[in-house]
Nucleic acid binder design. Structure first.
Lengths: 191, 191
DNA sequence: CGCGGGTTTGATGATGCTCAAGCCCGGTGG
DNA sequence: CCACCGGGCTTGAGCATCATCAAACCCGCG
């Protein structure tokens, strides 16, 4: 269960066995069932979630009650509402399990304590943030000034795995188009 | 000239005078004139730019020749194409000076060397990345599923300073709407 | 005074949303 | 084993938003 986390660390930084042992002691495992909410609008985000099995997604709900998917997280991905986590502000995001999930959880106190104790841990998160930032920026590029058809084509190009794991109406929301439009794009366009 | 950078460091991390002196020696000042390109599509992004005076913006050019503004950077902000910088990949972004600018520049070698030598420097960038990530995510929320009018209202709410410094057609591009639509929104809507 | 970039205004049309109905399929209970 | 139910997906029609094209306008600058 901790192996996939260890592999994720190893991929980005190097550290000793003792350091790794210290790490594991800061995390706790957690299981959530499909449809279960990990974080609700209005709460504080106190934890970072690492997905070892299953899938999560986060979304906001706007004033008209429409749900906007912010991102998905599959095996080996992290999930949290960083704004709420860092600023201690109530979240406007909800996080929900798309499938039954096994997670590793680290709360704020342990996270910042590890940051201080273990430079490799801070470096690991710095690198993850770099990657996450780059990905988000690409998503902005896709969201702005592209037609529904192009957005879908870009998704197939960049994240085809989404289509196997995620209900289409959530994919549509992620792309910022209506489910009907997505359906039509798929029907006509190049599959 | 280095003062604003020093203040930016101090705001986020603590470090000694010697550490700060080491830092400055890794940066070099640079002046760019309005309209000058700092980075062109196809090049490698080898530098991080810190704006001490003036304003920059970055944009992509799509297959139809349309320009999409990715972000702006004013005094005290950083600018780079992180994807190109980290992956050594040719950039699809261009970076251009909106006004005459004074910059502090650090190249890749110096940056990574400072990361290793100076934990406070790494921590500083980790924190900046956290903030940048949170901001980008809010921008995604704004871009998806809002009308032109709402996007503009959100901009006034979150980044009113843009309207004083940036030509409207670039603001429109940043919001992902046409200049004409922006003009009409401003004419009708709540100014 | 005339030029040019940026902004506005107007008319038109396409893209994509909304509402509504039907369909497909997997799960549940009789 | 089959009928029913419901969520998700598809299909259709009408309509709103917004992009596009075009022209006029405004203003700072040479």
């Amino acid at each position: 269960m901790y192996d996939t986390l260890k592999n994720s660390f190893i991929k980005h930084v190097s550290f000793s066995e003792q350091e790794w042992d210290m790490c594991t002691s800061f995390f706790r495992p957690k299981h959530v069932a499909r449809r279960q909410l990990l974080l609700q609008e209005g709460e504080l985000c106190r934890d970072l979630f690492y997905v070892t099995k299953g899938a999560l997604y986060s979304y906001t709900t706007d004033s008209k009650g429409n749900q906007h998917v912010i991102r998905f997280a599959f095996e080996g991905w992290w999930m949290a509402n960083l704004k709420s986590f860092f600023n201690n502000s109530p979240t406007r995001l909800s996080i929900e399990a798309l499938e039954n999930c096994d997670l590793l959880v680290i709360d704020k106190e342990h996270h910042f304590s590890l940051m201080d104790k273990l430079p490799a841990y801070e470096r690991y998160h710095r690198i993850l943030l770099e990657n996450a930032y780059v990905n988000l920026q690409e998503r902005i590029e896709n969201a702005l000034g592209f037609t529904a058809e192009e957005k879908y084509a870009n998704l197939i190009e960049q994240s085809p795995q989404f289509l196997n794991r995620v209900p289409l109406h959530l994919v549509a929301s992620y792309l910022g188009i209506s489910p009907e439009t997505l359906s039509r794009v798929r029907a006509s366009g190049g599959r």
